[in-house]
């Protein structure tokens, strides 16, 4: 079997104050796999996602990316491999123009300007953002902001993409466009969502979180009906 692209081994995590959010979470995702992370609000989905690129570090247990355990020393390296698209695009887009925002990650990686420009062009083309590359993010529509925030991550050429509620607050047209883009991406994908239609269209596997623990991990088509009905 290949080295998993992403692996959680017995991960526990509590926020300061003692509230335990992740309880003995273990799973692995193979390269190229597309996995939906589902569960009720407060079940620990977003906290779990923040562990995938070291924004939060586990209290106990380990999180590995391409076989390397994420720790304080290699967290920057892991962030080049795992690209994260946050739920609220306004949190993701902070530079004065879309173009400079998409270039933000590659520049932080210390790439040459020619390479930065080439990556920016490619990411904007894939996401259909080229026409508004010079616009300020706060002048964009919700759908455009979401596409731009995906471009900001694609420009870093990560192997793994993590989406937190990718379709939240999008209209049906923007949602359809987003699904089309994600569907064409060859990356390993982990996405948290409440949208079971979206999960079924894009993912083959589902992980159901319940009170910080994994309640189900298997094919999305066999996700037990009583568990789905709780979503």
């Amino acid at each position: 079997m290949n080295t998993p692209a992403l692996e959680f081994k017995d991960v526990c995590f509590s926020y300061p104050g003692g509230h335990e959010v992740l309880r003995h979470v273990s799973f692995s995702i193979q390269p190229g796999e597309k996995v939906a992370l589902v569960g009720l609000n407060g079940s620990g989905k977003s906290t779990l996602l923040l562990h995938t690129n070291g924004l939060l570090l586990a209290d106990t247990g380990t999180v590995s990316v391409n076989g390397k355990v994420i720790g304080r020393k290699n967290v920057e390296e892991c962030r080049k491999i795992v690209g994260m698209v946050f739920q609220n695009a306004d949190d993701q887009l902070f530079m004065p123009t879309v173009e400079t925002d998409v270039a933000f990650g590659p520049r932080n990686m210390g790439l040459k300007e020619e390479e930065v420009n080439s990556r920016v062009d490619e990411a904007l083309r894939i996401t259909g953002c080229s026409s508004f590359r010079d616009k300020a993010p706060f002048h964009l529509s919700g759908g455009q902001k979401k596409m731009a925030s995906i471009a900001t991550v694609l420009s870093m050429k990560p192997n793994i993409l993590v989406f937190d509620e990718p379709t939240s607050s999008l209209d049906f047209a923007a949602e359809a466009q987003l699904i089309g883009i994600i569907d064409r991406l060859p990356h390993t994908i982990l996405m948290s969502t409440h949208d079971m239609d979206l999960a079924r269209r894009l993912c083959t596997r589902a992980i159901l979180m319940d009170h910080g623990a994994i309640a189900y991990d298997g094919p999305i088509d066999t996700l037990p009906y009583p568990l789905i009905s709780t979503l």
């Binding site: 994260m84 946050f86 609220n88 902070f94 932080n108």
Partner: peptide, 23 residues
């Protein structure tokens, strides 16, 4: 709360406290 989320989004893209400028 928003500044905390923005900070996480910046760190996720390799921000280390220094502005990487266009030349």
């Amino acid at each position: 709360e928003r500044s905390r989320r923005i900070n996480m989004a910046m760190k996720a893209r390799g921000f280390n406290g220094t502005l990487s400028t266009s030349p």
